[in-house]
Simulated assay, not measured.
Amino acid sequence: MTDPTIGNLRVNGATLHYAVRGQGPLLLLIPGGAGGAASFDGIADDLAAEYTVATYDPRGMSGSTLDDPGAEQNVAEHADDALRILELLSPDEPAKVFGSSSGGITALHLLTAHPERIERLVAHEPPVVEVLPDAPEHRALIARVQETLRGQGLMPAMAEFAAGLKRGGDTGGDTGSDTTSDPKPEISLPPQAAARAERTMANLPYFLERIVPSFMSYTPDIDRLEELSNRLVLACGQDSHGELPYRPAAFLAERLNTGLLHFPGGHTGLTTHPAEFAKLLRKALQA
């Protein structure tokens, strides 16, 4: 595959770093977590055989810089960033969109706010926990994570967060400090993978302090999603059943009567099972 075309786009309060590869109708991939556009490295080239694939670093992460590094973040502004990329790269035609995790939340808002720009959306485990009947428990988890971040630092806060996601709910008490989700150092990483891991680690404080509390307190417009359900695919990882990121998508799929698509792997299946993930995503986008 040829190297992607790299660009920068000025938006309100930030400069977005994006990459484009392939040809055909536009497919925008919206990343979640702290990985940025690099989280799609395993599937972007595969998808570029059929689509013009656009990836980008969300504002404040990796190559996308904020004018004010201390600015508060919100879902609507992140969705507007995605809209600006769609307008730049596909000004005359609606695009297909895939969003994972917090990127799935961005994508859901984009769909409800600008449905004319989206032909089809696949949202993979968007943690919109406010739709759940036990939402107060998850608010308590987020508050504990923030308290731990302020009092004990990044890695204890990440352990608290990861344990809460694995449990699927707030059991209180146990902080999950022995969680198997703690980052594990690799003995030897290829240069590209090592650089990606370094960027992810650099993004973690911003992700945990600014993105997590804002995005996980977001409530989607369910009535609007129901109106647009014919272009929405809700998806989860087949190995993440019972975990917190799985539950909101499953809840919405039942509420909207859309069915729930299961991708290989868990919450990070696009990284752990890239070939199978890309194959299923291609089918979901065409259905």
Score class of each variant (00 low, 15 high):
144 R>W: 11
145 V>Y: 05
145 V>R: 01
145 V>G: 00
146 Q>K: 10
148 T>S: 08
148 T>R: 14
149 L>I: 07
149 L>A: 11
153 G>W: 01
155 M>L: 15
158 M>Y: 15
158 M>I: 14
159 A>P: 15
160 E>L: 14
168 G>E: 00
168 G>S: 04
170 D>F: 08
172 G>T: 02
176 G>Q: 09
178 D>Y: 08
181 S>Q: 11
183 P>F: 07
183 P>T: 07
186 E>K: 08
186 E>V: 12
186 E>Y: 04
187 I>P: 13
188 S>F: 07
191 P>A: 15
192 Q>V: 15
194 A>Y: 06
196 R>K: 04
203 N>A: 09
205 P>E: 02
206 Y>E: 13
209 E>P: 08
209 E>I: 05
216 M>Y: 07
216 M>E: 04
218 Y>N: 15
219 T>Y: 09
221 D>I: 09
222 I>E: 08
222 I>N: 06
224 R>N: 14
227 E>D: 13
230 N>H: 09
230 N>V: 06
234 L>S: 01
235 A>S: 12
238 Q>R: 13
242 G>E: 14
243 E>Y: 00
243 E>N: 04
248 P>M: 03
249 A>V: 01
251 F>A: 04
252 L>G: 00
252 L>P: 03
254 E>A: 14
254 E>K: 15
256 L>Q: 07
258 T>F: 01
259 G>S: 00
260 L>Q: 02
260 L>K: 05
263 F>T: 13
266 G>S: 02
267 H>Y: 09
269 G>W: 08
271 T>K: 15
